[in-house]
Design a protein around this nucleic acid. Structure first.
Lengths: 240, 240
DNA sequence: CTACATAATTGCAGTTATAGCATTATTTCT
DNA sequence: AGAAATAATGCTATAACTGCAATTATGTAG
């Protein structure tokens, strides 16, 4: 995964951008440099470059915040993706066949982003294109996708921070992930209700996963997994 | 705006990312290098680095597509921003006072992203956090924000491509922008209906704008502009 | 199935773009 | 107003990047 000759400038630039995204307020170059343990001149120049690109915005007080380019780029990548156009029908079908909530999402750094989530009260039109984040450890989708990663990567994400939903910490998460990996799907109790469960299966190339939430009975699981796998097959675009 | 010593690697890395976002399919390193007129080795290493960061994803066929990090980062930056928490009430108030559609959005490279858009049929709960893109030239919000940019920047965006909604091309857009700039707000016919207009005002630091759409009469404009300005004031967070 | 064409990936050495120091300018705080 | 912190930039050594060339892998056509 990591290239033979990675571009350190790009890595550091993205680190700056991440710092801005997470900060929740405008940051000066020196503040960023302290957060990231980076030379302040370097941080300053990377931030200025990001601002030039529109990925950061430099306000009147010359502090930096995340800029418009980030949102636009993310939305463009989603809307232009083949998945965006192919997912609607299969997921709506799934939703209409089953008494469960249907989700499709991706995972990054312990966080899940759902591109699609049908809610009972909500018409399918509004199930797509919402921005929703969730801790990966509380989501079936997050857990399957985490279970596809090498253990070291998982550790790198959660090292030195709490693991939401896992009071036992990292070891208990790792155990759950191993189970999910060997079964090929995640089946876990929902965070909120003890009656509800989340079931999720990852796409072949592990770039996303789809899942169901609701009062899923254990004996239904094998059939539902097959149904999810079938839906995943429908979502695969012919070429990439 | 552009720094004394910009980081070229970061710029090229973002160019690769943009290429992936716009492509609508997986691209190989060579394809990207051809699109961007860049050495293929360089493109390859930048893409590999982006993949390592999770901003790109390398599928089974080793081609690259935009990755999960992009969406997650964008959503995090939005949800962590002070604006996200402060905008709800003032915009709902505005919506309930007026018979118009209320919008709040940002603009980048000729595209508008609306963070908030109340729709008549839609409860306020769903007005926030949708991902919606629109051509900046067809949106009041896009036009005010464009009018805040130096003319050269506007030209750089639209050079060599059509200007949606402006059959006269760039010159007629520039003219509209000049008018908007001198008035301090945009007031233009809506793209769809000839009865409807869009009115928009930019935030002080030009990072975003708010607007109204609907059957706005010319004589109402001054009062509405004052109302929008007042709302913008409520949205300003104390520090940044 | 083999041969060919195209693309992915890496090693290497020259070169350039970047890192960090030192300095100045600007802002903020007291 | 003065002091302290931060923003911004010039300058040079050097570490990182670029691009060539070679290697491996993939896919395609005969």
């Amino acid at each position: 995964m990591l290239p033979a000759q990675p571009n350190q400038s790009l890595i550091d630039g993205v680190r700056c951008l991440k710092a801005l995204s997470l900060a929740g307020k405008s940051l000066g170059a020196v503040e960023v440099s302290r957060l990231l343990k980076m030379e302040s001149t370097k941080a300053h120049r990377l931030l200025k470059t990001l601002a030039h690109l529109g990925l950061a915005h430099q306000g009147g007080n010359r502090k930096f915040q995340a800029g418009p380019g980030l949102s636009v780029l993310a939305a463009q990548s989603l809307f232009n993706a083949p998945l965006w156009h192919t997912m609607r029908e299969p997921l709506q079908d799934l939703q209409s066949q089953l008494p469960f909530e249907v989700e499709l999402g991706i995972s990054w750094e312990g966080v899940v982003f759902n591109f699609f989530r049908s809610e009972p009260e909500l018409r399918a039109k509004w199930a797509m294109g919402r921005m929703e984040l969730e801790s990966a450890t509380r989501s079936g989708i997050g857990l399957v996708l985490l279970s596809c990663l090498p253990q070291e990567k998982v550790e790198a994400v959660f090292i030195g921070r709490p693991v939401p939903g896992y009071p036992g910490g990292l070891p208990s998460l790792i155990k759950t992930l191993r189970e999910s990996k060997s079964r090929g799907y995640a089946f876990v109790p929902s965070a909120n209700s003890s009656e509800n469960f989340s079931l999720a299966v990852a796409q072949e190339d592990k770039s996303y996963a789809i899942g169901l939430s609701g009062a899923i009975k254990e004996e239904e699981v094998p059939d539902l997994v097959m149904l999810l796998r079938h839906t995943l097959h429908l979502l695969r675009s012919p070429h990439d």
